[in-house]
């Protein structure tokens, strides 16, 4: 067990910032849940935690790889962010292939009349009785931003943990734990589904800040007091 000094306070702050980034990042990811799996809602057809964990863990791997080469925080966080962005983008592209070529549904958002990025009208393409389908451009861009924030947050947590205990295995599984707690809190905040930054539910993000702040702070204090052991 190690005590708490100025350096560990800095690591705790890094863990908290990482946790907040993860919690906010989740709000950007177009999560459609079960209805989207049947192409009856916009977004990727799975739950928030699965999407966040998938992209976040890829980010952790990318960050871990970069940590072998350098100990520059910026490069490591950037590597983690890019890793997560690639993963979430690949998921969305393949999801769109399935929706477009498999199901035969054009991507359309139910939350806006015109896509804020392409300015294309959405309602004509929406199948009756559904709340949109597929991953339209605005959701895709939003999801990429979500991957950036989540990956950056995850790798920041991992960097802080590894600097404390020097044990990649322990840091990795701890980072996953912190990542999941924040992702679940965020997914509860959006109540399961969201289209992205253009969704009205997105305005709820300040609520998750308090929750993620407290949760990350407690975990951060615990995490810095654990040594690598063995």
């Amino acid at each position: 067990m190690t005590g708490i000094d100025a350096t560990s306070v800095m690591y705790i702050i890094e863990i908290i910032i990482g946790g907040l980034l993860v919690a906010i990042g989740v709000h950007f990811v177009p999560v459609g849940g079960a209805p989207a799996a049947m192409a009856q809602a916009t977004g990727v057809g799975t739950g928030t935690v699965q999407l966040a964990a998938g992209s976040g863990l890829t980010g952790l791997l990318a960050a871990g790889l970069m940590m072998k080469m350098t100990d520059d925080l910026l490069l490591i966080v950037a590597s983690g962010a890019v890793g997560a962005m690639i993963m979430i983008d690949a998921t969305m592209v393949v999801g769109n292939w399935v929706y477009i070529y498999g199901v035969g549904a054009p991507p359309a958002s139910a939350k806006v009349n015109y896509d804020p990025i392409t300015k294309l009208p959405q309602p004509p393409y929406m199948a009756p009785g559904t709340v949109g389908q597929g991953i339209p451009t605005v959701c895709y861009v939003s999801g990429t931003i979500g991957g950036l924030l989540g990956g950056a947050g995850g790798s920041l947590i991992y960097f802080a943990l590894l600097s404390i205990n020097g044990n990649p295995g322990l840091s990795g599984i701890f980072a996953i734990g912190i990542f999941l707690v924040n992702a679940v809190l965020a997914s509860w905040n959006i109540q399961g589904t969201i289209e992205g930054f253009h969704d009205t539910k997105f305005k709820r993000w300040p609520r998750v800040l308090q929750a993620a702040l407290l949760a990350s702070a407690i975990i951060g204090v615990m995490a810095v007091m654990i040594t690598g052991g063995a």
């Binding site: 734990g177 707690v181 399961g192």
Partner: peptide
């Protein structure tokens, strides 16, 4: 959010 989220939360809190 579906039931899986809460199971992941349980082990996430538990491991730390």
């Amino acid at each position: 959010t579906g039931v899986p989220s809460i199971g992941m939360l349980a082990l996430g809190m538990g491991i730390v």
